[in-house]
């Protein structure tokens, strides 16, 4: 009787112990997995998306933006207007300081034009010439190497 009871107990104990072992094994394994999955995912280099970047970015050549012309390009995820002026290549944030429209190049007047409310900006300095914009366009560092136009600081 006593022997039988002890037997049952030890069997129960054995069951419990193996369950516990299984639980701890699962725990260790799942913990390692839930750490390793993000880390490995992180280590695999992603394709450089739209928000990537930094440093100098090649945005085109003087063939794309000939003398007296301007073009809006993307720098990271910000539109930037690059202009080939008589005083050299200049670049400004293309977001109008009035209501946030994207400015454009007016080749006829040789000025930066915001098409929304006719704000005009100086292509050399970004200063407001006419219209409602309250502030000049912030400049973006730009450099020219041979024919290649780079945005961002060297």
């Amino acid at each position: 009787m006593a022997l039988g009871l002890k037997n049952v107990q030890s069997k129960e104990n054995g069951n419990r112990r193996s369950f516990l072992k299984w639980l701890l094994g699962f725990g260790i394994f799942s913990t390692i997995a839930s750490v390793l999955i993000p880390v490995i995912g992180y280590l695999i280099p992603p394709e450089r998306g739209s928000t990537a970047g930094g440093g100098r970015v090649l945005v085109g050549t003087t063939l794309d933006i000939p003398f007296g012309m301007g073009k809006v390009v993307q720098l990271g995820n910000k539109p930037v207007i690059v202009i080939n002026t008589p005083q050299g290549i200049t670049a400004f944030s293309a977001i109008c300081t009035h209501l946030g429209c994207i400015v454009d190049w007016d080749a006829e007047r040789q000025l930066i034009l915001c098409p929304c409310h006719d704000g005009l900006f100086n292509p050399q300095t970004g200063a407001v010439i006419a219209g409602p914009p309250p502030a000049p366009l912030p400049p973006v560092p730009v450099s020219l190497e041979d024919e290649e136009i780079y945005l961002g600081e060297a």
């Binding site: 995820n77 539109p79 429209c101 409310h117």
Partner: peptide, 17 residues
Amino acid sequence: VNDAEVLLTEAHTSIIR
């Protein structure tokens, strides 16, 4: 959401125009 906001700005410009 920076990238989406740029597109939104574009849409905004077009609507105002």
